[in-house]
Amino acid sequence: MPVVGVLALQGDFAEHIVVLRRLGVETREVRLPGELEGLDALIIPGGESTTIGKLAHDYQLIEPLRALGAEKPIWGTCAGAIFLSKDATRVKQGQPLLGLMDITIQRNAFGRQVDSFETALNVPVLAAFDPANPPFEAVFIRAPLIESVDAPDVEVLARLDSETIVAARQGHLLATSFHPELNQDDRFHQYFLSLIPD
């Protein structure tokens, strides 16, 4: 059985762990570099990207996370997607990024909390987990968006409208600007687990 870590520096890591356990996966909270040992995959949760970035820097997690991401699946939701990206706009000056995924992210792209919303997204790749593939109820909270995909191997998985990319994958790296961990619908987590090699 794979062991999936959830970065537990700050944010809604417990919500991710609930979904992973529901799917029968062994989980581990990660706060220090040693806790990355032996993981098959990692989720970086929603939260405040400035806080997560600072704590990751202060506890020497940046390089070990980059090393993990070179080989193993990593999924960033919202703040986690910002942290995964190679380039980000509207971030705090000097805010650390892992720079693993060739996407440009715009932080707080929709505005303040009053502009947060729920909507239904069509996500074709989720058909593998439910042939009917109903729309995915996505929760956007002070959410970022993916301004651009910056390499030919980055696949767009979902858009809000023709302009706005909100989910993308590059090989074993996954970024969503919304929060599948706040739903009872586990298909996005199933999709992420399918990126772990047998």
């Binding site: 537990a8 520096l9 700050q10 944010g11 809604d12 890591f13 417990a14 919500e15 929603g46 939260g47 405040e48 806080t51 919202c78 703040a79 909390q113 009053v114 502009d115 947060s116 919303f117 729920e118 929760v139 956007f140 909270i141 002070r142 929060h179 706040l182």
Partner: peptide
């Protein structure tokens, strides 16, 4: 916009902080 899930959701993002 402004559903209870969205309102409670921001607090969920503040957890551990």
């Amino acid at each position: 916009v402004a559903s209870f899930k969205v309102k409670a959701g921001l607090a969920q993002m503040l957890k551990g902080g």
